[in-house]
Design a protein around this nucleic acid. Structure first.
Lengths: 162, 162
DNA sequence: TTATTTTACGTGCATAATACACGTAACTGA
DNA sequence: TCAGTTACGTGTATTATGCACGTAAAATAA
Protein backbone atom coordinates (compact mmCIF):
# COMPACT_ATOMS: atom_id res chain seq x y z
CA UNK A 1 0.00 0.00 0.00
CA UNK A 2 2.62 2.52 1.08
CA UNK A 3 4.82 1.36 -1.79
CA UNK A 4 2.01 1.52 -4.32
CA UNK A 5 2.74 3.82 -7.22
CA UNK A 6 1.10 5.04 -10.37
CA UNK A 7 2.84 2.58 -12.64
CA UNK A 8 1.60 -0.35 -10.62
CA UNK A 9 -1.91 0.94 -10.70
CA UNK A 10 -1.78 1.39 -14.44
CA UNK A 11 -0.48 -2.08 -15.03
CA UNK A 12 -3.01 -3.52 -12.62
CA UNK A 13 -5.81 -1.90 -14.56
CA UNK A 14 -4.39 -3.31 -17.76
CA UNK A 15 -4.21 -6.83 -16.37
CA UNK A 16 -7.67 -6.45 -14.96
CA UNK A 17 -8.96 -5.62 -18.40
CA UNK A 18 -7.17 -8.63 -19.76
CA UNK A 19 -8.85 -10.86 -17.24
CA UNK A 20 -12.21 -9.37 -18.14
CA UNK A 21 -11.61 -10.15 -21.78
CA UNK A 22 -10.47 -13.66 -20.90
CA UNK A 23 -13.62 -14.33 -18.93
CA UNK A 24 -15.81 -13.01 -21.71
CA UNK A 25 -14.04 -15.13 -24.28
CA UNK A 26 -14.25 -18.21 -22.09
CA UNK A 27 -17.95 -17.70 -21.48
CA UNK A 28 -18.55 -17.19 -25.19
CA UNK A 29 -16.58 -20.32 -26.03
CA UNK A 30 -18.47 -22.36 -23.47
CA UNK A 31 -21.91 -21.21 -24.59
CA UNK A 32 -23.85 -24.25 -25.76
CA UNK A 33 -25.66 -21.82 -28.02
CA UNK A 34 -22.41 -21.21 -29.87
CA UNK A 35 -21.79 -24.87 -30.52
CA UNK A 36 -25.31 -25.37 -31.72
CA UNK A 37 -25.00 -22.47 -34.09
CA UNK A 38 -21.77 -23.80 -35.48
CA UNK A 39 -23.14 -27.30 -35.82
CA UNK A 40 -26.28 -26.03 -37.47
CA UNK A 41 -24.27 -23.92 -39.87
CA UNK A 42 -22.22 -27.00 -40.62
CA UNK A 43 -25.34 -29.11 -40.97
CA UNK A 44 -24.12 -31.54 -38.36
CA UNK A 45 -25.98 -33.02 -35.40
CA UNK A 46 -23.73 -33.78 -32.50
CA UNK A 47 -23.59 -33.47 -28.76
CA UNK A 48 -21.68 -30.57 -27.26
CA UNK A 49 -19.07 -32.54 -25.35
CA UNK A 50 -18.60 -35.00 -28.19
CA UNK A 51 -18.18 -32.18 -30.64
CA UNK A 52 -15.28 -30.67 -28.75
CA UNK A 53 -13.58 -34.01 -28.51
CA UNK A 54 -14.06 -34.70 -32.18
CA UNK A 55 -12.34 -31.46 -33.06
CA UNK A 56 -9.55 -32.32 -30.66
CA UNK A 57 -9.05 -35.67 -32.36
CA UNK A 58 -8.84 -33.89 -35.68
CA UNK A 59 -6.19 -31.50 -34.38
CA UNK A 60 -4.11 -34.01 -32.49
CA UNK A 61 -4.21 -36.73 -35.10
CA UNK A 62 -3.80 -40.30 -33.84
CA UNK A 63 -3.74 -39.64 -30.15
CA UNK A 64 -3.95 -41.72 -27.02
CA UNK A 65 -6.79 -41.43 -24.54
CA UNK A 66 -4.52 -40.18 -21.82
CA UNK A 67 -2.91 -37.47 -23.89
CA UNK A 68 -6.31 -36.38 -25.11
CA UNK A 69 -7.49 -36.19 -21.52
CA UNK A 70 -4.50 -34.08 -20.51
CA UNK A 71 -5.00 -31.71 -23.41
CA UNK A 72 -8.66 -31.28 -22.63
CA UNK A 73 -8.20 -31.01 -18.89
CA UNK A 74 -10.45 -34.00 -18.27
CA UNK A 75 -10.15 -37.32 -16.53
CA UNK A 76 -9.10 -40.17 -18.80
CA UNK A 77 -12.22 -42.11 -17.89
CA UNK A 78 -14.41 -39.32 -19.18
CA UNK A 79 -12.53 -39.22 -22.44
CA UNK A 80 -12.61 -42.99 -22.73
CA UNK A 81 -16.38 -42.98 -22.53
CA UNK A 82 -16.81 -40.10 -24.91
CA UNK A 83 -14.50 -41.60 -27.47
CA UNK A 84 -16.58 -44.73 -27.13
CA UNK A 85 -19.65 -42.76 -28.10
CA UNK A 86 -17.90 -41.17 -31.05
CA UNK A 87 -16.82 -44.63 -32.09
CA UNK A 88 -20.35 -45.98 -31.97
CA UNK A 89 -21.36 -43.00 -34.10
CA UNK A 90 -18.77 -44.03 -36.64
CA UNK A 91 -16.86 -40.76 -36.44
CA UNK A 92 -13.78 -41.99 -34.63
CA UNK A 93 -11.94 -45.29 -34.56
CA UNK A 94 -9.70 -46.77 -31.94
CA UNK A 95 -6.61 -48.39 -33.31
CA UNK A 96 -3.90 -50.18 -31.36
CA UNK A 97 -0.65 -48.33 -31.20
CA UNK A 98 2.23 -49.77 -33.17
CA UNK A 99 4.73 -49.12 -30.44
CA UNK A 100 2.77 -49.60 -27.23
CA UNK A 101 0.10 -52.22 -26.95
CA UNK A 102 -1.47 -50.55 -23.94
CA UNK A 103 -2.61 -47.53 -25.86
CA UNK A 104 -5.51 -47.40 -28.27
CA UNK A 105 -5.13 -44.36 -30.47
CA UNK A 106 -8.13 -42.34 -31.50
CA UNK A 107 -8.29 -41.36 -35.16
CA UNK A 108 -10.92 -39.83 -37.38
CA UNK A 109 -12.83 -42.10 -39.67
CA UNK A 110 -13.77 -40.96 -43.14
CA UNK A 111 -17.15 -39.89 -41.82
CA UNK A 112 -15.46 -38.12 -38.95
CA UNK A 113 -13.20 -36.27 -41.34
CA UNK A 114 -16.16 -35.22 -43.42
CA UNK A 115 -17.84 -33.88 -40.30
CA UNK A 116 -14.85 -31.92 -39.07
CA UNK A 117 -14.36 -30.50 -42.54
CA UNK A 118 -17.86 -29.10 -42.45
CA UNK A 119 -17.32 -27.69 -38.97
CA UNK A 120 -14.02 -26.12 -39.95
CA UNK A 121 -15.53 -24.47 -42.97
CA UNK A 122 -18.43 -23.12 -40.96
CA UNK A 123 -16.02 -21.75 -38.40
CA UNK A 124 -13.91 -20.14 -41.08
CA UNK A 125 -16.98 -18.44 -42.51
CA UNK A 126 -17.96 -17.08 -39.13
CA UNK A 127 -14.44 -15.95 -38.34
CA UNK A 128 -14.13 -14.16 -41.66
CA UNK A 129 -17.37 -12.38 -40.94
CA UNK A 130 -16.21 -11.33 -37.49
CA UNK A 131 -12.93 -9.92 -38.79
CA UNK A 132 -14.48 -8.32 -41.83
CA UNK A 133 -13.98 -4.83 -40.43
CA UNK A 134 -10.51 -5.47 -39.05
CA UNK A 135 -7.29 -4.45 -40.72
CA UNK A 136 -5.21 -7.45 -41.71
CA UNK A 137 -2.33 -6.10 -39.69
CA UNK A 138 -4.38 -6.17 -36.50
CA UNK A 139 -5.58 -9.70 -37.09
CA UNK A 140 -2.04 -10.88 -37.62
CA UNK A 141 -0.90 -9.17 -34.45
CA UNK A 142 -3.80 -10.54 -32.46
CA UNK A 143 -3.06 -14.09 -33.54
CA UNK A 144 0.64 -13.70 -32.85
CA UNK A 145 0.23 -12.28 -29.37
CA UNK A 146 -2.67 -14.48 -28.42
CA UNK A 147 -0.81 -17.62 -29.47
CA UNK A 148 2.14 -16.51 -27.44
CA UNK A 149 -0.09 -15.83 -24.49
CA UNK A 150 -1.90 -19.16 -24.87
CA UNK A 151 1.37 -21.01 -24.72
CA UNK A 152 2.63 -19.08 -21.71
CA UNK A 153 -0.70 -19.58 -20.02
CA UNK A 154 -0.69 -23.29 -20.72
CA UNK A 155 2.88 -23.77 -19.53
CA UNK A 156 1.88 -21.52 -16.67
CA UNK A 157 4.90 -21.53 -14.34
CA UNK A 158 3.10 -23.05 -11.39
CA UNK A 159 4.16 -21.66 -8.07
CA UNK A 160 6.26 -24.60 -7.05
CA UNK A 161 4.95 -27.80 -8.54
CA UNK A 162 5.90 -29.49 -11.79
CA UNK B 1 -11.51 -26.28 -54.34
CA UNK B 2 -11.00 -25.03 -57.87
CA UNK B 3 -11.49 -21.47 -56.73
CA UNK B 4 -9.11 -21.81 -53.82
CA UNK B 5 -6.22 -19.42 -53.93
CA UNK B 6 -3.13 -18.65 -51.94
CA UNK B 7 -4.57 -15.66 -50.12
CA UNK B 8 -7.48 -17.68 -48.83
CA UNK B 9 -5.19 -20.40 -47.66
CA UNK B 10 -2.99 -17.94 -45.81
CA UNK B 11 -5.87 -16.31 -44.02
CA UNK B 12 -7.42 -19.68 -43.29
CA UNK B 13 -4.22 -20.81 -41.64
CA UNK B 14 -4.17 -17.65 -39.60
CA UNK B 15 -7.71 -18.12 -38.39
CA UNK B 16 -7.00 -21.74 -37.69
CA UNK B 17 -4.14 -20.73 -35.44
CA UNK B 18 -6.42 -18.29 -33.73
CA UNK B 19 -8.92 -21.01 -33.04
CA UNK B 20 -6.18 -23.22 -31.67
CA UNK B 21 -5.11 -20.49 -29.30
CA UNK B 22 -8.72 -19.91 -28.28
CA UNK B 23 -9.22 -23.56 -27.45
CA UNK B 24 -6.01 -23.68 -25.44
CA UNK B 25 -6.96 -20.59 -23.49
CA UNK B 26 -10.44 -21.90 -22.85
CA UNK B 27 -9.11 -25.22 -21.62
CA UNK B 28 -6.62 -23.47 -19.37
CA UNK B 29 -9.31 -21.21 -17.98
CA UNK B 30 -11.61 -24.15 -17.32
CA UNK B 31 -8.99 -26.24 -15.56
CA UNK B 32 -10.15 -26.87 -12.01
CA UNK B 33 -6.48 -27.05 -11.13
CA UNK B 34 -6.14 -23.40 -12.06
CA UNK B 35 -8.93 -22.31 -9.78
CA UNK B 36 -7.53 -24.32 -6.92
CA UNK B 37 -4.14 -22.78 -7.39
CA UNK B 38 -5.59 -19.31 -7.44
CA UNK B 39 -7.73 -19.96 -4.40
CA UNK B 40 -4.83 -21.48 -2.53
CA UNK B 41 -2.61 -18.56 -3.40
CA UNK B 42 -5.37 -16.29 -2.17
CA UNK B 43 -5.82 -18.39 0.94
CA UNK B 44 -9.49 -18.88 0.21
CA UNK B 45 -11.53 -22.05 0.33
CA UNK B 46 -14.37 -22.05 -2.14
CA UNK B 47 -16.06 -24.28 -4.63
CA UNK B 48 -15.15 -23.89 -8.29
CA UNK B 49 -18.54 -22.90 -9.65
CA UNK B 50 -19.24 -20.63 -6.70
CA UNK B 51 -15.91 -18.96 -7.14
CA UNK B 52 -16.63 -17.95 -10.71
CA UNK B 53 -19.99 -16.57 -9.75
CA UNK B 54 -18.52 -14.63 -6.85
CA UNK B 55 -16.07 -12.94 -9.19
CA UNK B 56 -18.91 -12.19 -11.58
CA UNK B 57 -20.89 -10.54 -8.81
CA UNK B 58 -17.86 -8.44 -7.98
CA UNK B 59 -17.51 -7.31 -11.59
CA UNK B 60 -21.15 -6.71 -12.32
CA UNK B 61 -21.97 -5.00 -9.06
CA UNK B 62 -25.59 -5.23 -7.89
CA UNK B 63 -26.96 -7.52 -10.54
CA UNK B 64 -30.13 -9.50 -11.05
CA UNK B 65 -30.18 -13.26 -11.19
CA UNK B 66 -31.34 -13.27 -14.77
CA UNK B 67 -28.68 -10.89 -16.01
CA UNK B 68 -26.06 -12.85 -14.18
CA UNK B 69 -27.33 -16.01 -15.83
CA UNK B 70 -27.18 -14.42 -19.26
CA UNK B 71 -23.66 -13.16 -18.71
CA UNK B 72 -22.48 -16.55 -17.53
CA UNK B 73 -24.32 -18.52 -20.18
CA UNK B 74 -26.24 -20.47 -17.56
CA UNK B 75 -29.86 -21.11 -16.74
CA UNK B 76 -31.33 -18.71 -14.22
CA UNK B 77 -32.28 -21.60 -11.95
CA UNK B 78 -28.67 -22.68 -11.72
CA UNK B 79 -27.57 -19.20 -10.81
CA UNK B 80 -30.38 -18.85 -8.31
CA UNK B 81 -29.21 -21.92 -6.45
CA UNK B 82 -25.57 -20.96 -6.53
CA UNK B 83 -26.25 -17.46 -5.30
CA UNK B 84 -28.20 -19.12 -2.54
CA UNK B 85 -25.12 -21.04 -1.54
CA UNK B 86 -22.95 -17.94 -1.65
CA UNK B 87 -25.54 -16.22 0.50
CA UNK B 88 -25.48 -18.97 3.09
CA UNK B 89 -21.69 -18.64 3.11
CA UNK B 90 -22.11 -14.98 3.90
CA UNK B 91 -20.24 -13.81 0.80
CA UNK B 92 -23.17 -12.44 -1.16
CA UNK B 93 -26.43 -10.84 -0.16
CA UNK B 94 -29.70 -10.60 -2.03
CA UNK B 95 -31.31 -7.23 -1.84
CA UNK B 96 -34.64 -6.21 -3.34
CA UNK B 97 -34.36 -3.90 -6.28
CA UNK B 98 -35.50 -0.35 -5.75
CA UNK B 99 -37.26 -0.15 -9.06
CA UNK B 100 -38.57 -3.65 -9.66
CA UNK B 101 -39.85 -5.74 -6.81
CA UNK B 102 -39.53 -8.94 -8.79
CA UNK B 103 -35.75 -8.81 -8.89
CA UNK B 104 -33.45 -9.58 -6.01
CA UNK B 105 -30.07 -8.10 -6.76
CA UNK B 106 -26.93 -9.94 -5.78
CA UNK B 107 -24.24 -7.85 -4.12
CA UNK B 108 -21.02 -8.64 -2.31
CA UNK B 109 -21.05 -8.56 1.46
CA UNK B 110 -18.08 -7.21 3.35
CA UNK B 111 -16.75 -10.75 3.69
CA UNK B 112 -17.34 -11.31 -0.01
CA UNK B 113 -15.43 -8.18 -0.86
CA UNK B 114 -12.55 -9.28 1.33
CA UNK B 115 -12.50 -12.61 -0.49
CA UNK B 116 -12.55 -11.17 -3.98
CA UNK B 117 -9.84 -8.72 -2.98
CA UNK B 118 -7.60 -11.61 -2.05
CA UNK B 119 -8.41 -13.42 -5.26
CA UNK B 120 -7.76 -10.33 -7.35
CA UNK B 121 -4.43 -9.76 -5.72
CA UNK B 122 -3.39 -13.35 -6.23
CA UNK B 123 -4.38 -13.13 -9.86
CA UNK B 124 -2.43 -9.92 -10.30
CA UNK B 125 0.64 -11.56 -8.86
CA UNK B 126 0.34 -14.50 -11.22
CA UNK B 127 -0.32 -12.29 -14.21
CA UNK B 128 2.68 -10.13 -13.45
CA UNK B 129 4.80 -13.23 -13.27
CA UNK B 130 3.49 -14.50 -16.59
CA UNK B 131 4.21 -11.21 -18.36
CA UNK B 132 7.53 -10.68 -16.68
CA UNK B 133 9.45 -11.37 -19.88
CA UNK B 134 7.09 -9.43 -22.15
CA UNK B 135 7.69 -5.96 -23.41
CA UNK B 136 5.14 -3.49 -22.08
CA UNK B 137 4.24 -2.53 -25.60
CA UNK B 138 3.21 -6.09 -26.44
CA UNK B 139 1.10 -6.44 -23.33
CA UNK B 140 -0.71 -3.23 -24.12
CA UNK B 141 -1.35 -4.37 -27.67
CA UNK B 142 -2.52 -7.80 -26.55
CA UNK B 143 -5.01 -6.33 -24.13
CA UNK B 144 -6.28 -3.85 -26.67
CA UNK B 145 -6.81 -6.36 -29.44
CA UNK B 146 -8.07 -9.10 -27.19
CA UNK B 147 -10.62 -6.79 -25.59
CA UNK B 148 -11.77 -5.76 -29.02
CA UNK B 149 -12.02 -9.37 -30.06
CA UNK B 150 -13.85 -10.36 -26.89
CA UNK B 151 -16.47 -7.74 -27.53
CA UNK B 152 -16.91 -8.69 -31.16
CA UNK B 153 -17.09 -12.32 -30.18
CA UNK B 154 -19.65 -11.66 -27.49
CA UNK B 155 -21.83 -9.54 -29.73
CA UNK B 156 -21.20 -12.25 -32.27
CA UNK B 157 -23.29 -11.26 -35.33
CA UNK B 158 -25.48 -14.31 -35.18
CA UNK B 159 -26.55 -15.56 -38.55
CA UNK B 160 -30.02 -14.19 -38.32
CA UNK B 161 -31.19 -13.91 -34.72
CA UNK B 162 -30.75 -11.01 -32.33
C1' DT C 1 16.32 -63.05 -16.44
C1' DT C 2 13.01 -61.96 -12.74
C1' DA C 3 10.62 -58.86 -9.76
C1' DT C 4 8.76 -54.37 -8.79
C1' DT C 5 6.85 -50.15 -10.13
C1' DT C 6 4.67 -47.22 -13.34
C1' DT C 7 1.54 -46.33 -17.09
C1' DA C 8 -2.74 -46.78 -20.16
C1' DC C 9 -7.16 -48.03 -20.33
C1' DG C 10 -11.91 -49.29 -19.14
C1' DT C 11 -15.89 -49.77 -15.81
C1' DG C 12 -18.78 -49.42 -11.51
C1' DC C 13 -20.17 -45.93 -8.61
C1' DA C 14 -21.33 -41.50 -6.55
C1' DT C 15 -21.75 -36.68 -7.03
C1' DA C 16 -22.90 -32.39 -8.52
C1' DA C 17 -23.74 -29.06 -12.06
C1' DT C 18 -27.16 -28.11 -15.02
C1' DA C 19 -31.46 -27.66 -17.74
C1' DC C 20 -36.38 -28.09 -18.07
C1' DA C 21 -40.96 -27.55 -16.44
C1' DC C 22 -43.95 -25.39 -13.50
C1' DG C 23 -45.92 -22.06 -10.19
C1' DT C 24 -46.08 -17.39 -8.22
C1' DA C 25 -45.48 -12.62 -7.92
C1' DA C 26 -44.75 -8.35 -10.23
C1' DC C 27 -44.39 -5.39 -14.18
C1' DT C 28 -46.06 -3.64 -18.88
C1' DG C 29 -49.00 -2.10 -22.26
C1' DA C 30 -53.49 -1.87 -24.51
C1' DT D 1 -58.86 -3.66 -16.03
C1' DC D 2 -56.87 -7.56 -18.16
C1' DA D 3 -53.78 -10.27 -21.01
C1' DG D 4 -49.10 -11.04 -21.80
C1' DT D 5 -44.38 -10.90 -20.28
C1' DT D 6 -40.66 -11.12 -17.03
C1' DA D 7 -38.03 -12.48 -12.67
C1' DC D 8 -37.43 -15.75 -9.52
C1' DG D 9 -37.40 -20.13 -6.99
C1' DT D 10 -38.13 -25.22 -6.53
C1' DG D 11 -39.02 -30.14 -7.85
C1' DT D 12 -37.21 -33.43 -11.01
C1' DA D 13 -34.32 -35.74 -14.29
C1' DT D 14 -30.30 -35.93 -16.94
C1' DT D 15 -25.61 -36.35 -17.59
C1' DA D 16 -20.99 -34.99 -17.58
C1' DT D 17 -17.47 -35.83 -14.56
C1' DG D 18 -14.13 -37.63 -11.16
C1' DC D 19 -12.60 -41.28 -8.15
C1' DA D 20 -11.52 -45.93 -7.06
C1' DC D 21 -10.45 -50.22 -8.68
C1' DG D 22 -8.87 -53.96 -11.72
C1' DT D 23 -6.12 -55.58 -15.70
C1' DA D 24 -2.70 -55.64 -19.07
C1' DA D 25 1.50 -53.89 -20.83
C1' DA D 26 5.72 -51.40 -20.46
C1' DA D 27 9.61 -49.56 -17.95
C1' DT D 28 12.82 -49.99 -14.41
C1' DA D 29 15.29 -52.26 -10.78
C1' DA D 30 17.50 -56.11 -8.90
Amino acid sequence: MSTENVQNTRKDALLRDLHGALVEITVAMNRPQRDEELLEEAGVSLDKALFKLLVAVERLGPVSIVELAERMGLDHSTVSRQIGKLESLGLVARQPSETDRRVREAVLTQAGRATTDKIDKARQRMARELFETWEDKDVVTLVRLMSRFAEAFREHPRSGSR
